[in-house]
Amino acid sequence: MLLNQFLLLAAVLFSIGVYGVLARRNGVLVLMSIELILNAVNINLVAFGAYHGTVSGQVFALFVIAVAAAEVGVGLAIVLLLYRNRQSIAVDEVSSMKG
């Protein structure tokens, strides 16, 4: 198999994820898009690991999965807090940093 086919798939997923992060308004959907980005990275890690014949890629992918779990946990807690304070999870309404 070509290395490229995995890398290209990852590139597509990554770009879709970026689009989702920027275009979605619902906090939960933004978090889902971040998961897409992380998965794209994981594909790259595993593919390169196989390409170079080492297990390091897999190990790093496992670490990324663990970090993603932590990220979703904290992210959802923040969204929950947001909802509790504002009765809405629309991320574009959170603009108290406006200069």
């Binding site: 992060v21 920027l22 275009a23 991320v91 574009d92 603009s95 940093m97 406006k98 200069g99």
Partner: peptide
């Protein structure tokens, strides 16, 4: 000038970042 960019919307910042 910079003030114009400070909309406070995280996603706009994200768009600029990406």
């Amino acid at each position: 000038a910079l003030r114009q960019f400070q909309t406070g919307r995280v996603q706009q910042y994200g768009a600029l970042l990406f």
